[in-house]
Nucleic acid binder design. Structure first.
Lengths: 158, 158
DNA sequence: CACTGTAGTCAACCTGGTTGTCTATCTTGG
DNA sequence: CCAAGATAGACAACCAGGTTGACTACAGTG
């Protein structure tokens, strides 16, 4: 499969990503977050990193503010964040991450790292670090936008 | 970014895949295939590899036959394939790839390989080969069969 | 020949996005 | 001080690429 073809390389990259993320989502479900989707995690991380309004989140994730609003609605629905009108600018709705939301990214981070640690055992620490360094070269100058429809979404696990 | 965090590793993998595929789609558009989507390429490759009916394609891509039928409809619409009723089994509709479809995967393969070659220049041939070998390990024990690109969906057989 | 399995279709729905349009509210330059 | 413009958010319609579920038509077999 690592057959020196560009198309195969694409499948290797996508397959690795999906393996990693599917595992995290599956494990999150068993740890009390059965309704968490990858996009939720990314969104909460962005909010925690400072995106405190829908427009802000939209810029951060490089998606439209309508899409960001939908994501926030999903997060509110699941109890990961709350919103309240900004007293200083009543157009804005400030986002606050709930304890449940904090729990989600805490667990999610831990699981991601656990899976990465297993990969490290298989590959060796130096090799995995090297792999990451190489991938970083490919991705280096592009912003972290997850804008193409469905790409961060993956499938519902069954 | 290559910060030894599992979450970052996921973004590196996804980002690399997207960089690669976006480039291919962009370049394909300039070479006479402005409406080609990644899923079209994978579908035509699967058809060329032997999936000659909707149900067959569905099994190969590990998606539902309804989804496969939609994809085929899109391919027919764009002139990449044609379908005709199988004379020996009038339930089946045999898929045939048109010259336009052949052209698409020919160009697509070439572009994929061009981008891979550029990566090879940046990384070195041995390093890229090593990276592919490592990625193959991650997808290797996956329940998803990448040889018959089953990455696209969940793992349970239908 | 009846039964079971398979090919394909229709319809409704989901997720995570997109445009385009609109109002309400801030902010700033003259 | 205020009109003009920028910004925040919401609503509606839509798209891609999947999903379930229910269904018909046909094929192959015991």
């Amino acid at each position: 499969m690592s057959s020196r073809s560009g198309a195969d390389l694409a499948l290797l990259l996508l397959g690795s990503y999906r393996n990693l993320v599917d595992e995290v989502v599956r494990e999150l479900a068993t740890r009390g977050y059965p309704d968490a989707r990858p996009s939720h995690e990314y969104a909460i991380r962005a909010i925690r990193a400072g995106a405190d309004s829908a427009s802000d989140l939209a810029r951060r994730l490089a998606i439209t503010k309508q899409a960001a609003a939908k994501t926030i609605a999903a997060l509110v629905e699941r109890g990961y964040v709350t919103t309240e009108t900004d007293p200083a600018d009543i157009r804005r709705k400030n986002i606050r991450i709930t304890d449940h939301g904090i729990g989600l990214i805490t667990e999610s981070t831990a699981i991601f790292d656990e899976v990465r640690a297993r990969w490290e055992v298989r590959l060796g620490a130096a090799e995995l670090a090297e792999l990451e360094r190489q991938l970083a070269q490919f991705v280096g100058d592009s912003p972290i936008n997850l804008d193409a429809p469905g790409w961060a979404a993956g499938q519902e696990l069954r």
